[in-house]
Design a protein around this nucleic acid. Structure first.
Lengths: 330, 330
DNA sequence: GTGAAAGCGCTAACAT
DNA sequence: ATGTTAGCGCTTTCAC
């Protein structure tokens, strides 16, 4: 049996109320008894029971975080940033993984509610009015990150459309003649929430359209994009081509494929990523990509949530900055 | 106010005991009332309060996991594996990060105890009798992974010494004449728990000793190992050198440095890593390294812990297998 | 300054 | 088959 405040109370010959006052240094207790209680507690290696405290206080001091997994993109960094910042505010973090599965995400949300988390940071794959109603019914503050749900929800992220637009403009300036855009199946649009992916694609199209190059774009959105790439003439006397990937991981796979074909980057073909994931520093040639501060997304999300929880304030968060990392693949 | 079993009881005109029986399908309830209760609960969007349940049952159905962070090595994969396996058994996972700081680790342990986790999976940086006593005093089952504490504790991992020995033997067979071993400062030996690092280094020495090559080994254990490498003659008419790194991340940094110097791998210099982290697939040339199933470590650790918790059984876990990945850098 | 007691929401043992 | 009740460990209000 673990030691409780009741045990401490008996040992000190006082009531549990007094022990509580000492332990949580609340007023209404003499310095002397307080000191004694704290000493005994220390000696007995007393550890408070957070479960009981939460039940009594109605708050768990815990933030739930919902992500796909911890591999993708820079989720590991994001997670670290969130955990650190939450700790600063005295909160702890519960991480749950959806594996990009919508049903799973619902279960994750239920789980966090069951656990009575005080607030939730959500990278959603769901969308639609029905889901939003479900989420509202949970009666728990939610901050969305990286993938917008709707204007009704707090959101922390970058302007993905403008960022991709800038990136493509950067490519255009280098004088490419043909553009291949690779992204996950936009056909999921109907079901899954791929807001960010859509935004990036729109940004690409906008840039090309404004440059009058719209018809030079080839969209590859199949699962097996490497295979699809093979189908497209990439060698010999073809227009000078740039491959634009909606995220770095695609770009890395493409880079492997291009290398395997013996193509030189960027002489034979240009390549652009997005996200600037941390492993890029070990990849040659250095990938041209778009960077933004993932950690900052985590920090801002926590600040927003804690603001709501601790101070009932809910300020809108401006979109975060981004920048193009030149690299050597464009 | 969120809805509770008491509310459901009133709505159904039954007692909380009956509601509990229905919700947790325990015996002693008619199919009819059960159905009604479940229906009302559904309609009212009832969510059980895990906090209250834990307090009543004395179990939280939660496993604590203590790691440095989620970047290093293959911690992300490890974490995913642990979370998945724990879910299978109906457990949830609480992850806490120590940032390789010993004091922090103590706080993390305290935290998990405060949260009343049922068991803990620990990648420790602490060691010594005092720490072990502290850990035992927590009265919570602990399974150590990846870094041994002592024979007193359950452990899941590989035979690092033998694995590195095999790796170095593999290098020796390729006819290298000089060996450079790079690892974190073994000087931390006194304070921090670097069991695994020591084992790997010993394995390297053993292999060389048995081949009569012991004096050909240069140990680099400074923080700034890239700088230290520079000091050592690596070009021109020097003995054919292999650089052995105690983990892949060092090897990747070294690879970058070698490339920057214009050295060819493995023609000019050999390079070996350890861990086979997942990003290696995007790195050229493919790094020769040692692989083992991180996921399996997670799975086994969870199985062990759940065995202790659910069935009071505590079987010793055999060390996991490993194998050398040839790559193209040796 | 300190004690007593009523919860927090749920479980489980004991009645009926 | 169903109801009643005493906790689980802590917080908090109200007396003294």
């Amino acid at each position: 049996m673990r030691i409780t405040i009741k045990d401490i109370a008996e040992l000190c010959g006082v009531s549990v109320g007094t022990v509580d006052r000492a332990l949580n240094n609340r007023p209404g207790i003499s310095a002397k008894t307080k000191k004694k209680i704290l000493q005994i507690a220390e000696e007995m290696h007393y550890r408070p029971d957070h479960t009981a405290r939460s039940l009594a206080k109605g708050r768990t001091m815990t933030l739930g975080v919902i992500l796909f997994d911890v591999h993708n993109r820079s989720f590991a960094q994001l997670m670290n940033a969130i955990a650190d910042k939450a700790n600063e505010f005295g909160y702890f973090v519960d991480l749950v993984l959806t594996d990009k599965n919508q049903e799973n995400e619902l279960r994750c949300l239920e789980h966090l509610i069951t656990r009575k988390v005080d607030g939730i940071i959500l990278f959603t794959v769901n969308k639609g009015k029905e889901f939003e109603q479900f989420a509202k019914r949970l009666q728990t503050p939610i901050v969305t990150i990286c993938n917008r749900l709707s204007e009704d929800w707090n959101y922390v992220g970058i302007d993905d459309r403008q960022a991709m637009k800038d990136a493509v403009q950067y490519i255009i300036d280098k004088g490419y003649e043909r553009y291949i855009y690779i992204c996950p199946p936009l056909a999921f649009r109907g079901k899954s929430n791929i807001y960010t992916q859509e935004e990036r694609y729109e940004g690409c199209k906008e840039a090309l359209r404004e440059a009058g190059l719209e018809e030079r774009l080839i969209l590859i959105e199949e699962r097996n994009y490497i295979h699809a790439l093979d189908q497209i003439a990439l060698t010999g006397s073809v227009p000078r081509t740039a491959i634009i990937c909606s995220c770095d991981y695609y770009a890395l796979e493409v880079m492997n494929a291009l290398k395997a074909k013996g193509l030189r980057i960027p002489e034979d073909i240009g390549l652009m990523g997005f996200d600037n994931i941390d492993v890029l520093k070990y990849v040659t040639p250095p990938l041209t990509t778009v960077e933004y501060a993932v950690e900052e997304i985590g920090v801002k999300a926590v600040e927003c949530l804690v603001g709501i929880l601790d101070r009932q304030e809910e300020p809108a968060i401006p979109l975060l900055p981004y920048r193009i990392i030149p690299g050597a693949t464009i």
